[in-house]
């Protein structure tokens, strides 16, 4: 049996070895990017913003790129994570870990509800349900202005230190220290997400993306898998939202707007669906572009539209797809590139 397994591996050695190298390569590249970001960019705050949105895009990618679920509901979890963690810190005096944990748990619970409701329908109806729920969440946040600050946003959100009892271990008051916190959390999530996408669960998600009817006929309870990936994605997105609140010391109402869902989706698509590293590229590109262009030209979002159209038409694999095919060509690999498992 083992020799047989070796034979089949040997049948396509080039691709497999390439894929393995690329896999280890992206993790290293990711670490390198995280160390370099605050050094290269004008501020650590900007670098932090990139990683927070990369986290949200990565979570969105688990739905869109790995399971084929186009959800406009990500703002619900992002906004809820931001509001709930901020409220827990303001009213319940929650510490850093407590606030982040509350955000993750509430994100998971909300995603469980949203997921269970939305996956009852497929295709366009699924998308419409996620749209409707995001609108509801927005108006809920708008109406509950005693808690959320409504249009003005929730002010005076603290950025608590890592503390045991009364003793402060690490303060995150400086932008660089907070960046280090966000970077460590992002690295952790990235590694965990990679592990998950390489697991039986992750491989089944790809099967559902490719052909849900067949997956179901093979014995997979596809609804259960879709709900689980929703919960996972919701938890990560809520964590990103909570960190964003701490970064800004403020939770704007726009965190829970439909526009936030769109932005997260655009980052995911531009970066490359089905590639976790792509999410970092996509978030980086959009946040940087926004930062650069918004000071020059207030209607810069127009250019974002053009960029999205270009990627969708000319670069189906997004920035990651473009980059990896470039790498592959430079290696002089003769094997025709195709997605073996659909991800890096």
């Amino acid at each position: 049996m083992t020799t047989k397994t070796l034979d089949t591996v040997a049948a396509s050695p080039g691709r497999r070895r390439f894929k393995g190298r690329l896999g280890a390569g992206t993790t290293l590249a990711m670490l390198a990017v995280m160390v370099l970001l605050p050094l290269v960019l004008p501020s650590a705050t900007l670098a932090t913003e990139i990683l927070i949105f990369a986290m949200a895009a990565l979570a969105c990618n688990l739905l869109l790129g790995f399971t084929g679920l186009l959800s406009f509901g990500q703002a619900i979890f992002f906004g809820a994570g931001a509001y709930i963690s901020a409220l827990a810190m303001i009213h319940l005096n929650a510490g850093l870990i407590g606030a982040l944990l509350i955000a993750v748990v509430s994100g998971c619970v909300l995603a469980l509800g949203v997921g269970m409701l939305c996956i009852r329908r497929k295709g366009i109806y699924f998308v419409m349900l996620t749209l409707a729920l995001t609108q509801m969440a927005y108006f809920l946040a708008y109406t509950l202005s005693d808690w959320t600050g409504g249009d003005n946003g929730l002010l005076d959100v603290p950025r608590p230190p890592l503390a045991v009892g009364e003793t402060t271990l690490i303060s995150f008051a400086s932008p660089l220290a907070f960046y280090a916190l966000v970077a460590s959390l992002f690295a952790l999530i990235y590694v965990v997400a990679r592990r998950i996408t390489d697991s039986p669960f992750g491989s089944t998600l790809l099967a559902i993306r490719e052909n849900e009817q067949r997956a179901s006929a093979l014995g997979y309870d596809t609804r259960l898998f879709k709900i689980m990936v929703f919960v996972l994605s919701g938890g990560i997105t809520a964590l990103a939202g909570a960190l964003y609140g701490m970064l800004l010391n403020f939770v704007p109402l726009s965190n829970i707007e439909l526009l936030m869902s769109e932005q997260i989706l655009i980052m995911t698509i531009i970066g490359g669906t089905g590639s976790l590293f792509g999410s970092l590229l996509g978030a980086g590109a959009i946040v940087l572009l926004g930062d650069l262009l918004s000071s020059i030209w207030p209607r810069w979002m127009l250019l974002l539209g053009v960029a999205l159209i270009a990627v969708v038409i000319f670069m189906r694999g997004g920035l990651w797809g473009g980059l990896s095919s470039l790498l592959e060509r430079r290696r002089g690999s003769h094997t025709k590139p195709h997605k073996e498992a659909g991800h890096d």
């Binding site: 039986p200 669960f201 491989s203 089944t204 790809l206 099967a207």
Partner: peptide, 23 residues
């Protein structure tokens, strides 16, 4: 979009039921 081998592996894994949720 998945390889022939992966198609068959997924087909064999389907029998796992709940255990296929192992992440």
């Amino acid at each position: 979009e998945l390889s022939v081998h992966e198609n068959l592996r997924l087909a064999a894994q389907g029998i796992d039921g709940w255990r296929a949720l192992n992440f």
